[in-house]
Amino acid sequence: MTGELGDISVSDYYDSKVRHGEIDADADQRALAVRFDRLLEKVSEKRLSRKTSSLGWLFAKRQPVEPVRGLYIWGDVGRGKTMIMDLFFEIVPVKRKGRFHFHEFMRDMHARIKQARADIASGKIKGDDPIKPVAEDLCRELRLLCFDEFSVTDIADAMLLGRLFSRLFADGVVVVATSNVEPDLLYKDGLNRQLFVPFIQQLKERCEVVRLSSRTDFRMEKLGGQPVYLHPFSDEATARFQSMWESVVEAPRAPSDAVEVQGRTIHVPQAYHGMARFSFTDLCAKPLGASDYLRLCELYHTIFIEGVPQFERAMRNEAKRFITLIDTLYDNHIRVIALADVSQFDLGVKLGGTEAFEFDRTASRLTEMQSDEYLEQCSRL
Rank of each mutant, 00 (worst) to 15 (best):
D292K: 02
L87P: 13
E149Q: 11
K61W: 12
H101K: 11
A118N: 05
T238R: 15
L144V: 14
A271N: 03
L191N: 14
R99V: 01
A254Q: 01
V268Q: 05
F357S: 05
T82G: 08
A254D: 06
G70W: 09
A363Q: 04
L288V: 02
R365V: 01
R38C: 09
L381G: 00
L168Y: 11
D157C: 02
M244H: 04
E306Q: 14
P255M: 00
L381T: 06
A156G: 10
G78V: 12
P67E: 01
S247P: 03
F150Y: 14
D76T: 02
V336C: 15
S371I: 04
V152T: 13
S243V: 05
L40P: 06
V268W: 05
R215A: 15
N180K: 08
E312S: 14
G263L: 01
A237Y: 10
C139H: 00
S279K: 03
P255S: 13
M244L: 14
R79T: 14
G348H: 06
S166L: 08
R112A: 15
M275S: 13
T265P: 03
D360H: 05
R143G: 04
L168H: 14
T281P: 10
F311T: 07
P227I: 11
C284F: 02
K95W: 05
A31P: 10
G225W: 13
V249K: 00
A271C: 07
V174E: 06
S16H: 00
L144C: 10
L195P: 07
D137M: 04
T362I: 11
L230E: 11
K97N: 13
G80F: 04
A258H: 03
R167E: 08
D157M: 12
P183M: 00
V209F: 08
Q344F: 14
D157L: 09
D148S: 10
V249F: 02
D331S: 01
E41P: 01
L366W: 01
W245V: 09
I200Y: 12
G80M: 07
W74R: 06
P198V: 03
F150D: 08
L203Y: 10
S166Q: 15
R361H: 11
P198T: 12
E236M: 11
F150K: 05
F357W: 04
L48V: 10
Y229C: 10
G123M: 00
D26H: 01
L55G: 01
D372C: 08
K46W: 09
E104W: 09
Y72F: 12
P309H: 09
K126V: 07
G353L: 05
G123K: 09
L299E: 14
V175D: 09
G80A: 08
L71A: 00
L191R: 15
L5R: 02
S243M: 08
D128P: 00
A319T: 02
K81M: 04
M1I: 03
D372W: 06
R62T: 11
R361T: 08
F199A: 05
P309C: 11
A31T: 15
D137N: 08
R313N: 09
A27F: 05
Y330W: 05
L39P: 06
R365M: 03
Y374N: 02
E376R: 10
D129E: 04
S247M: 00
Y229R: 13
D148I: 09
V308R: 01
L40F: 15
N180D: 08
